[in-house]
Amino acid sequence: MSLHSNLHAEPWLISLDSGSATPVYVQVAQGIKERIRTGLLQSGTALPAERELAQALGVSRVTVRGALALLAEQGLLTRRHGSGTFVAPVQSDIPARPLGILSSFSDDVRSRGQHPGAKVLHFEKARPQPSEALSLELTPHDQIYRIQRLRTANGEPLALEESTLPADLVGALRPSDVRDASLYALLSARGLRPHHAVRHLRAVNADLTLAGLLGVPVGAALIMTERVSWTPQGQAIEYARAHYRGDKYDFVMELHGEDTSA
């Protein structure tokens, strides 16, 4: 069946074959994928609402929903809660963080030609929780700064970061000190730049709170990291947890084979 778009938009003039063994939703996904590949649908392009797209294609909304879900699974589309469905950035647009290099979020984003931002969601000076005290080698009577920030690139949310810092080591700190600023740069200015760290990564799904903050659907794939960093003198300076958008951020690891020549 041929399509005459009610949207009067060339990208949606997709030819569908009702007699094909290929499910219609897959045909729709293939048609949209081809338009993304050829540049007819560019990064950031907003797709019509499901109802409008179904009407334009002459198919059901269930068919359209299946096609969009398939493309989202392949990383070609991204869904923003309350905003709609968009063509995802090409891989080169996604900041890649080398796993073997200890660098700040701000440095990573700037290396991609983007402007980093940090919105402070929570800031407090308090006693450490058991996990924080253990990671930072503190006693239950010490004090820490607990900071939660929404990290952005060119104003778009990329990650939710939670950092715990030993108050006695860091010195006086205010919320304004970490707003739209690199935490590593601040620590460096105080002679406390992290020198080495241990980081754990795992895949998680966005719950309602994370989805709302990061602008992704509930259940969207996220990369969760947990890290402890030390100064050159061996002082634990930061215990950090972060949730990165899986569609906007990736980590790169360089691997080497074992030397078996000996």
Rank of each mutant, 00 (worst) to 15 (best):
R65S: 15
T85K: 01
Q55E: 14
G58F: 02
G84V: 08
L53A: 03
L99G: 10
V109F: 03
H115W: 08
G113C: 11
D108E: 13
Q114Y: 11
A72R: 14
L76T: 01
V64D: 01
S103H: 11
A72G: 11
S60L: 04
Q55W: 01
L71V: 01
G100W: 02
G100E: 14
V64M: 06
F86C: 00
G66S: 07
R112C: 13
L57H: 05
S106G: 11
T63W: 02
L71D: 05
R80F: 04
L102F: 03
S83D: 14
V120G: 04
V87Y: 02
R61I: 09
R112A: 12
Q114P: 00
R79W: 04
Q91E: 14
L102W: 02
H81Y: 10
P116N: 11
T78K: 09
Q74L: 10
A67Q: 06
G84W: 03
A88K: 01
P98G: 06
L99Q: 11
A67K: 00
G75D: 10
V87I: 12
G117V: 08
A96N: 09
V90S: 14
R79D: 03
L53W: 03
L53C: 05
P116A: 13
V64S: 01
A72D: 13
V109D: 04
A72T: 14
